[in-house]
Amino acid sequence: MIIKSINTQRLGFAALFVCIIIALLVLGSLIYFIFSNGISSFSWTFFTDIPRKSMTAGGVGPAIIGTIYLVIGSIIVALPLGVITAIYLCEYSPKNLIVNIIRLSVNNLAGVPSVVFGLFGLAVFVKLFNFHVSILSGSLTLGILILPGIISASYEAIIAVPQSLREASYALGATQIQTIGRIVLPAALPGILTGIILGVGRAAGETAPILFTAATFYARTYPTSIMSDTMALPYHIYVLMTEGTHPEVQKMIAYGCALILLILVLAVSGIAIYLRQRQRRKYG
């Protein structure tokens, strides 16, 4: 009886071990294939040149720059809204109806499919506000998409600031806004930063929201203003794979783009996760 139950335990634990190994293998093989195929595309011109010969040669410079613009734009949109929402939820509002409504909205906004954000951006920014297909429209759309993430990271960071620091500040005669600005936010900054970095990773990789709001098939030049449409890395991969005229050559360019994106996303997420773990250790 005892031996039987020990054997069941061994078997069960082995099954769980297999699960985690599968998860790791998938991640490993994905990174391996993209890395081994993508690295051959890497060269100086690949990063800086514009696409040439109907996207079979040249580089993907405009797509890289476009992605950077979209990421910066979306952070500019989401950061103030997100941090202020988190401040309000943590510092001002008692537990009441308003807070519940805001929380519910944030949670549900987080669950909206990304292509629906694209529809929203198309109807509101592109059409209604007449911003056309542009970096501005794309940034606003992506900004709303990453807003819930920024809110919850900021919320966690602000709520983790020990109450004793706020009390110390009030006891010295600080007002609430002084306490928030000089004590709470600086102490929460690493956590908020983590949220921003994760937002960067998300905004860089999202494709569906920019399909109809910012992305263009092919650009001969770098974007010149926030009203220009733009190439972007994830969209460029999609274009190469679906509308390509020379599949074999263009597949390799797509590998290169995927590798840039993968490195970017893994690096920023890695940094964010590292920062967060260090932060958690600090507060215990």
Binding site: L30, G205, P234, Y238, A258, L262, V265, L266, S269
Partner: peptide, 13 residues
């Protein structure tokens, strides 16, 4: 990290 990889990369893969 697996969760942070963009869907376009999974699609491409």
């Amino acid at each position: 990290l697996l969760g942070a990889i963009p869907s376009i990369i999974f699609g491409f893969f």
